[in-house]
Simulated scan of single mutants.
Amino acid sequence: MAAKETLLSKDLQFEKKNKDLVKLPKYARVQKRPIPHPPVASPYAGSSIPKIVYVGTKTPFMSAAKRVQKLLRHAEKRATAGVDLGNHKISEKEKLARLAKGQEALKKEEVFIKATGRAIERALSVGKWFEEKEEEYAVSVKTGTVLVVDDIVEDEEAESKEMEKDGSTGENATRLTESKAATTTATAASEQPLKKRKRRAKAAAPADAELPESRTRWVNMVEIAITLK
């Protein structure tokens, strides 16, 4: 019997936004900044405040699942706070009306699981765990991208070595050019590495260009919304 295809078992589609980034010289490296998140809301906060569980690559699976369940339990308490079934002063009709209203409010209060980049797979595994309990939970998923900033860090020592190497390479290229008239075979042998160096120079940022302090890129993001049924 074929396994049932669920929402989270399908291949998710992400929009490709990143353009070709300028290749950095060997003496520079990219240092990723942590992605900023708004403060995590208290479980006791009202239904109008989004409840979010951020999942990283090292977030324990059950830890994330239990945090979602805890937030949903608090949502259930808020939704049923006005339903006093033991109050004999309220008619049965009014009790049923309040209960129905509470159920509708509960379906609207979502808990979100969010993750970016390599953590997406872990977030999907948590979402799939809830999706398999379809009698208790409703699950929906949305994909997107987040703009992040990376710092560009220069290594002064490596830069000096690179400049010395470039200077030495330039002198060698000059000697090869001067010996061009000596023999056609020697010329052919010297032109090939020179062309390779030119191609590499075009791909990289100019040696005398000032490197930016940072650069931006887009990172894939997934948002899984979970509600109680």
Rank of each mutant, 00 (worst) to 15 (best):
K4D: 07
T6G: 07
K10Q: 12
K17E: 03
K19R: 15
K23V: 14
L24W: 09
K26E: 15
Y27K: 01
A28H: 09
V30R: 14
V30W: 00
Q31D: 14
K32G: 07
K32M: 06
I35T: 15
P36G: 05
H37K: 14
P38G: 07
P39D: 06
V40D: 09
S42K: 13
Y44R: 10
G46D: 13
P50Q: 00
V55Y: 01
T57Q: 12
F61C: 06
M62K: 15
L71D: 03
R73K: 15
A75W: 01
A79V: 05
A79H: 06
A79F: 05
L85M: 15
G86A: 04
G86H: 11
K93Y: 08
E94V: 13
L96F: 08
K101V: 03
A105L: 09
L106K: 01
L106D: 04
K107D: 04
F112Y: 09
I113Y: 03
I113V: 05
K114S: 02
G117I: 09
G117Q: 05
G117S: 07
G117K: 08
G117M: 09
A123Q: 02
L124M: 11
V126C: 14
G127K: 01
K128G: 04
F130A: 02
E134T: 09
E134C: 01
E134L: 01
A138V: 09
V139W: 04
K142H: 03
T145W: 00
L147I: 05
V148A: 12
E159V: 02
S168G: 13
E171S: 00
E171R: 00
N172T: 00
A173I: 14
R175K: 05
E178M: 11
S179A: 14
A181I: 10
A182V: 13
A188S: 12
A188W: 04
E191L: 09
R197M: 14
K198N: 10
A205Y: 10
A209T: 07
E210R: 09
P212G: 05
V219E: 13
N220P: 11
V222T: 04
E223L: 08
I224Y: 03
A225I: 02
A225L: 03
I226V: 12
